[in-house]
Each structure stands twice: as structure tokens, then as C-alpha cells.
Design a protein around this nucleic acid. Structure first.
Lengths: 341, 341
DNA sequence: TCTCTGTACTTAATCGTTTTCGTGAAATCA
DNA sequence: TGATTTCACGAAAACGATTAAGTACAGAGA
């Protein structure tokens, strides 16, 4: 199988026609005879012909390749579970439409230290999806301002299509549920600064206020997303308060594990002594005992819509509406929250 | 910023030299004057020049792009946690060496239904890494037999470089540990058929035998990897036996969650009534209470070595040794296994 | 019979690079 | 001073595909 790669030229020679004819036959142009077409295709097949993406890209300015930019504060990359769920769905949808996925990040480590935009131009990505990064990074800004089709996830730039999880309503539902269970001393281990955090935090406060609940400032503590150790520390801080909360919200389901450990180490029971609430709704949350109360973000839908919209944009740059699409999550009540009387 | 992409030609015009000279200056060839070089580079920079990957690939037959093939039985894709840890490390190492990562799979869904090999040829991948797939798939076979540099993970083809987690010694250590804690009635919820499963299963039996422990056939039950529901069912089956085991091995830490739930639903305590053992050693295992006894697979190292070896192979196809590299895991004892007296 | 219209091709340019082979001028050597 | 080497650069082909424009020929229409 060490044969040289077969090109249009090889087929043209084998068929005794010109390269142009072969190209047109393979691309089903109308000005090639039916018999010729079939013959050419047959020969192409038997020769094991495969188009050369580089040559096609060079000529057509189309790569059928989408760039993925993802950098989070912890640099968890592909191990970031919410993101990899979104990305997996994005990838599937893209592939169904004939697009491949290539990563853009890793910029800092590269030999030829390219910016995100440079990298995107270099690879000739037809479009780019940006998720979970530090959206205030000047390199991201450069990319967002470029002429490359872009879709962002969970952050809005008003000149770009954005797909965002409904953190406002999600947090509202979650908070309302906890309130409805009779909790009044509700603490929030919030994630670090980001669009997502802002939405959730604002919604958290607003909902409490609507329910006439006032919490002390010490009830809101910062811990990075997905950081069990930080959540552990934060939880200890909360439980050490003179008037500790009866329920603790965590940045996400995974970080909540750290909190759960802190609680249990003190000999406290969940939910009898302290109730616990997560966010994300990944599979793990439903497998824990007690089952975690959380918001299931529809990562499947988010990824799918992002891909669909980006591909629309690629295929019709002028005619595609710049819009912000909000994807609803669903409240998943679990035994981790106790009903107070 | 909607300027047309700038090419070598633009630079050559701006500098009043030929395209060849520009190309050579940018690639630091020796036959260009120092001053000219610097001037050209400066102009290139100021014009915002970016090389065109497609043109380069076409000319040099090098894409600096590596294909990643990953398909597991459950099609979990990027959400497969062991794999995404390996891949993340692979990706980082590849990027440090100037390579990008593009996925190969998704073949079935593609418009132009390409085989894995076709896809790899089409994209002109410099090399390919294959992990966790069904290694008996004829398409995988075709790829493995091709002339493209390949590294496989957790499965050996003897004509290819392979990086594998040391499942034999891992399972030995794990089993020995459990034996050392006094367990004799040890059950194994094993994964579905694969190289990994075979190694672990064989090692499991062998180690038990060496310790003079004989277990009934019913103690070994099949459940897919990462399938909490199946592990749940399997566990119930085991606990319903007349003489139930005192310790249960699971295919991986995540699946173990299903088993844990089954155990607790019966009002049994871990580890007092039943001990539990996982595999993988992902972060979650150390955050559970009780902490899970498991083997930490060195996914970081596996990914890194796979990338390094593949890149060696790409850069020196003839001179690189075809070898099988085994990466040791480490036993992580946890409170999930009780010491019997 | 002559023109016209399709049909089915071919020719040739082009995309952006890289690289081999020249070539002229300056520098070195005898 | 004449021959040779070195240096710095240019011309042109090539990678594999696409596509606008041109051409040859058969049959239709007048």
C-alpha cells in the first residue's frame, strides 16, 4: 500500500481525458457526458483516488474545517466536563455537515508563537467557535473583530452570534426551589468573574430579594469552577460562621464534591444538617448519594445550535442573522436539599 | 480589517525583491543577505503576513496536523473522561511541537462517506493516533496497515508503536492490595471485550490464583465501561448471590458510582458491609466518600509519550524504533476497602 | 447549403508556497 | 591581471485542484 498518492492527473491519464474533465466529472458538472462521468468515477474509485484537501483549499478558499478556541482559567482543556459535552455535540453536528474540527489554542506553547487570529488565518478555518475563554483577552478580541465567521458560547459580543445557557432563569429556578423548601439561610460559593458568573450571581440576589430573603455578605464566597479544593475551603469558611447557612450553592456539580467532603468531615449530614446545590447537571450529579439538586444545562443543544448557526454563517455570510440564542436548562431536584418546615 | 489576505507576492512587491527571496528570507535560508532578511521580515510583520497552510502543505507534503481517531463502544467521544485526559495531554505536547489536532472519526455521519484512511489521506495528516476504538473494525485495520505514521494507545499492533497503560501490573497491585486486606470473596464487574479488559481480567485471575484464592464464576460479571446503570444491575446480581462477595471491582471509577448506589440502596455500608474498588484514578475517585481504592492511570504521561513518539516517527520514519511502551499506574488505596481480620 | 445551437470536451490560468538551478557581481587567489 | 570562488538574489517549475474561456463536432432550423 505504499503507492504514491493518486491525483486527478493519474485518473486523466488512465481515462485518456483532460484533468479538467476529471475534476468536473467528480464534481458532477453538467457539461460532461453521462458515460464519461461514470467511467471516470469508476476509474477514480478503482485507483483509490482521494481529493487533496490542501489543493482544494488553496484553490477554493474553503477548508471545511472549523477552529475551536477554548481556554479556561484552570486550563483544564478537554477535561472540562461541561465544555467537552458541548464540544462533543458541536463536533457531531459539524461532522454531519462535512466539517472537521481543529483546535486553535495552545498558542503560547507553539514554536511559531501565533495569536489566535493568526492561527485561524494560517489554517484557513471557515469559521471559529469560541467558548469559556477569558473574553477580555486581547487576542480573543482580535479574533472577534476579524472577518472570520465566529460563534461564541456563553458570552455575548453584540456583533457576533452567541449561544448561551440560560443562567439567569436557571439560577432563578434553582433559588426559587430552595426557597420553596423553606431555606432562608442560603450561601453561594460563586465562580470566578465571567459572564456566566455575573448572570448567575445577579439572578441569585434578585430572586432572594423577591422572596424577601436577605443574606449577609459572608454568605457569598468565591471559588474557581471545578475546583474541589477551593470549594472545600469555602465551605469550611461558611460553616465556621456564627450563623452558618442551611443550604450552600456551588459553582458546579463537580466543585460541590469538595463542599460535600468538608461538610461530612465535620460529621454533618447532607441534607439533614446542610443542603447542597450544584450546577451543570452532568451525569455524575444524578449518581451521587444523595442525588444532587442542580440545573441541567442542555449542553447537547448548545453545541448543536452553535454548530448549526456557524455553518449557516459560513455558507451565507451576508444573509445570516446576528442573534443571541438562549438555551434553557431544567431544574433537577434531588435529595441533597432538605425540606424545612 | 477586511483586507485581502497578504501573500508572499505582496511582500515581494513592497520590498522590490522576488517571491523566492521573500520565501527564503522568512524561512531563514543562508543565501539571503542579512539586511535584506531583516527588511523583508519587518515588512512582512507590518503587512500582517501569515503563511497559508494549504499552500505550504501542497508544496511540502507536510500539514503539521495530526489526526485523532477515537470511537468507543458507547460513542461517548470527548466526554469519555479517561480518554479526554489522555487526549488533552497529547494535544498539549503536540502543540508544543507545532502540530495541530484534528479528529478523524465521525466517518459514518459525513456527507462524503469517507473511511478513516480516506479521511486521513484527504486531510494529509502527518500522523495519526488511535485510541480506545474497536480495534477489530476493518476500517481501523486499513488505517493501521497504511503508510501513514501511527501510534496506538492501549492496544498493540506489532507493526506499530503502541503506548499502553500497564493494566497487567495495575490489576495485580490492586488485587494484591485487596487480598492483603484479608478479602477472599472478591467479585469483578469487568468491562466489555477489549485489549484492556483482557489484560486486567487475566491479571486478576492470575493474582488470585497466586494467593490461593478461588472464586466462583458468578463473581465475574460483564458491564460496559463508564456505564453506571449496568454496574448497578451487575452489583445487584452479585449481592443477590447466596454467598455474596465482600469486595467488588468495577471497570472504572465512574461505573463504580452505579455500584455504590446499588449497595447503599440495600442499606449496606461501604466499606463495612461491602468494599469497592475502581480503576482510572481520575480526580473524582479521590473526592468521593469514602475515598475510592483505585489504580491511577498516568493519562498525562500516556498522552505525552504517544505524542512524542508519533512526532519522532513523523520526523524520522525510517529511523524510529517500533516499540511498545508500557506506562505504569499507581495504586491509590482508599477507605472504600475495609481491612478484614 | 449555410448558419446556429448545443454538447462534450480541452486549454490554460490560478491559488500561495517551496526549491532547484542559474546568473551577475564582488571578493579571493595565483 | 586573469581565473576562480563566494555571495546574494531571481526565474521558473511544481504541488493538485478549480474554472473561465475556447473549440470541435453533430444535428437543427431556414
Amino acid at each position: 500500500m505504499a503507492k504514491r498518492k493518486v491525483s486527478l492527473k493519474d485518473i486523466s491519464i488512465a481515462c485518456g481525458v483532460s484533468v479538467a474533465t476529471v475534476s468536473k466529472a467528480l464534481n458532477d458538472h453538467h457539461d460532461i457526458g453521462q458515460e464519461t462521468k461514470e467511467h471516470i468515477r469508476q476509474v477514480a474509485e478503482s485507483l483509490g483516488y482521494r481529493p487533496n484537501a490542501a489543493a482544494q483549499a488553496l484553490k477554493t478558499n474553503r477548508t471545511n474545517n472549523i477552529g475551536v478556541l477554548f481556554v479556561d482559567e484552570a486550563n483544564s482543556g478537554l477535561t472540562h466536563d461541561y465544555f467537552n459535552h458541548v464540544l462533543n455535540s458541536f463536533k457531531n453536528t459539524a461532522e454531519e455537515n462535512g466539517f472537521d474540527i481543529t483546535f486553535i489554542n495552545g498558542g503560547k506553547a507553539r514554536i511559531n508563537n501565533m495569536s489566535y487570529l493568526s492561527h485561524a488565518i494560517y489554517r484557513g478555518f471557515d469559521g471559529v467557535v469560541i467558548a469559556c475563554v477569558d473574553f477580555f483577552d486581547p487576542e480573543v478580541d482580535e479574533l472577534v473583530k476579524s472577518s472570520i465567521p465566529v460563534v461564541t458560547i456563553d458570552h455575548i459580543f453584540y456583533n457576533r452570534i452567541a449561544v448561551i445557557s440560560d443562567n439567569v432563569n436557571g439560577m432563578r429556578e434553582l433559588t426559587e426551589y430552595v426557597c420553596s423548601q423553606g431555606h432562608k439561610k442560603i450561601a453561594y460559593v460563586r465562580g470566578v468573574e465571567s459572564s456566566v458568573t455575573q448572570s448567575r450571581l445577579a439572578s441569585f440576589y434578585k430572586t432572594l430579594q423577591e422572596h424577601g430573603i436577605d443574606i449577609p455578605d459572608e454568605y457569598v464566597v468565591i471559588a474557581p469552577y471545578r475546583d474541589t479544593d477551593a470549594a472545600y475551603e469555602a465551605t469550611n469558611k461558611l460553616l465556621n460562621l456564627q450563623d452558618p447557612p442551611t443550604c450552600i450553592f456551588y459553582p458546579d456539580d463537580f466543585a460541590a464534591l469538595g463542599g460535600i467532603n468538608a461538610i461530612r468531615e465535620r460529621g454533618l449530614k447532607i441534607p439533614d444538617d446542610v443542603s447542597v446545590v450544584g450546577y451543570d447537571g452532568l451525569e455524575i450529579s444524578s449518581r451521587l448519594t444523595p442525588k444532587m439538586t442542580t440545573i441541567v444545562q442542555d449542553s447537547e443543544k448548545i453545541g448543536k445550535i452553535a454548530a448549526t448557526k456557524l455553518i449557516d454563517l459560513i455558507n451565507n455570510p451576508k444573509g445570516t442573522l446576528i442573534e443571541q440564542i438562549v438555551v434553557k436548562g431544567t431544574l433537577e431536584p434531588g435529595a441533597s436539599v432538605k425540606k424545612l418546615n
